[in-house]
Design a protein around this nucleic acid. Structure first.
Length: 295
DNA sequence: AAACGAATCAACCGCATGTCT
DNA sequence: CAGACATGCGGTTGATTCGTT
């Protein structure tokens, strides 16, 4: 199909994020949440925006009608595609992320869940508060897989290697985890085989999610959640390692709390969020929204 | 101290899925 | 209902770091 790419590739930056980009993104997302990721890079460079955006996908505002009057004005935004912003945020900048290696308990849980769900990393990650699918996937491929192999277990089937080799469908020369086709076959197998179990797991997810969502961010000590760890790791990940002027952690937490509010009620004016309930368009005019296209 | 290989992990890519018009 | 679009997911890549010789 003639489907357009998720972003215009021309002129967009790739590769490692700089501290400055991180800062822009964090500051923007903590104060506004996100609406459609495609717009985030553009809006992240703007000075002030109304926090109309949502964190949970509900009450989605009419993003498609948002129209920046000019992209090339004074505030250039981030030269990244929305996809890249989302990835950076979910895998690295999110305040409620745990850093560091997985604990033994977490590792066991991952193994257990993998035996039931296969390579459905996002599902697995959903059961481990503060961990991302990417992190778990990397940890699996670099640590756990080796451990299982050492123990004589097939990392795919979780059965003793001899038993899994007996499977005629499986090419013993090949590591299914390194082969996309094999992996998809394998996950398809899991999909059919573990459906009931998965259903049970999935249905249990909301509870887990509830314990680890925004409240986790606040429950953990402020520093790891907010700028200290984020900035530390961000600068660590930054080639230049430049010092960054991160927002005050306390400010971020106040904003974070606001983000957790019910945006639908905020937008309807009943949120009681003080200046949050002000007219959207007042704020939009600040950043060059074309009101005409909203209506 | 330098060179090399292995390990790690952030980021990218393409496809799948869900939602909206 | 079909097509278009945005987002999410899993696999893969490649730059960087670490360990060994």
């Amino acid at each position: 199909m003639g489907r357009q790419p998720c972003c215009e590739k021309v002129g967009l930056k790739k590769g490692p994020w700089t501290a400055e980009e991180d800062q822009k993104l964090v500051a923007f997302l903590l104060s506004h949440g996100h609406c459609c990721w495609r717009l985030v890079p553009k809006l992240a460079g703007q000075r002030r925006l109304h926090p109309y955006m949502h964190g949970d996908g509900s009450a989605r505002p009419p993003c498609k009608r948002i129209h920046l009057v000019s992209d090339s004005q004074s505030h250039a935004g981030l030269l990244r595609c929305g996809k890249s912003c989302r990835l950076r945020w979910t895998n690295y900048l999110r305040p409620d992320l745990k850093r560091g290696l997985l604990s033994d308990d977490e590792e066991k849980l991952v193994i257990d869940l993998h035996s039931q769900l296969g390579n459905r990393w996002s599902k697995i990650a959903a059961r481990l508060p503060g961990r991302t699918d990417n992190e778990i996937k990397n940890h699996w491929n670099t640590h756990i897989r080796k451990k299982l192999k050492k123990m004589g277990l097939d990392p795919v089937t979780h059965q003793p290697v001899a038993a899994s080799r007996a499977d005629p469908l499986q090419d013993p020369q090949q590591d299914p985890h390194c082969d996309g086709k094999a992996s998809s076959q394998e996950s398809a197998g899991y999909g059919t085989g573990a459906s009931a179990e998965e259903e049970a797991l999935t249905s249990a997810e909301p509870k887990q999610g509830a314990t680890c969502s925004a409240s986790t961010a606040s429950a953990v000590s402020p520093s790891p959640c907010s700028s200290s760890s984020a900035s530390a790791s961000a600068s660590a990940a930054t080639p230049g390692g430049a010092d960054v002027d991160w927002p005050d952690p306390l400010d971020l937490f106040q904003v974070d709390a606001i983000i957790d509010m019910d945006w639908a009620s905020i937008l309807s004016g009943s949120g009681g969020g003080g200046d949050i309930g002000v007219d959207l368009f007042d704020q939009c005019s600040d950043v060059g929204f074309d009101q005409e296209v909203w209506m």
